[in-house]
Amino acid sequence: MRRLINLKPSRSVGVMLGLLPFALIVIIYIAASDKRLAENPDDRLLPSFTQMGEAVERLAFEPSRRTGEYVFWEDTKSSLQRLGLGIGIAALIGFSIGTLTGSIPLVNSPLSPLLTVISLVPPLALLPILFIVFGLGELAKVALIVIGVAPFIARDIQRSAQEIPTEQLVKAQTLGASTWHILLRVLIPQLTPRLIAAVRLSLGTGWLFLIAAEAIASTDGLGYRIFLVRRYMSMDIILPYVAWITFLAFLFDWLLAQLSRKAFPWHHQGGKA
């Protein structure tokens, strides 16, 4: 018998093993749900897939009787708008600060300690301040995502910029590059794929802050909806919403990975030269 660490599943067995836990969870859920519903048809804790399907159909494909809107899609639109705006602004700020502090010592000295301290402030503790300063509107929610995500991106990009070999910076200077040239042609192009990687890592945090902000002060959005229907124990709505959020998170992660691989092939094939 070979050692355990040397036993590798074949590709098909690997896929099967990967799907197994999902199948198990679904089977256990259906069994448990059936059992509870058999005892009490009005049970709300573990709705059947049919009940969840009906709830989604009601929210996604029938206009709301109150506003005439398709609630599910409106929620999705509002949430994605906030998330996109928040992550976009955070990426822009984080990338600029990270690139400059990582490459220019005179920018690094005054900003780096500040950045370290800011990144240690728990963003949710700042949420009340944001609500006081920016009001309960969109701005506070977007600001929360920016504050939560930008320092992480800035620090990640700063580290990546510092990891670019000194040899490259010296070489660029011997080719007659100015500081501006080095930023534009050497650092920024090489840091862009790192930015995509940093955004992928910070999307999870972004969702966290989005849902937190929506739960506390909002009138629409995916996070708002699940916290609203919690009052009625509507698991038939909460569970599909959670699945939908998970799917969206997965989708964006996948899209960013594809974009990076298509746009920066040299980065993914180990280009360090």
Binding site: E167, Q168, V170, K171, K272, A273
Partner: peptide
Amino acid sequence: NEPDQARGIVFQQYSVFPH
């Protein structure tokens, strides 16, 4: 006291731009 285009350099590695 800083590198310029009058003096070219080739290092053992990391001399060319990977991107």
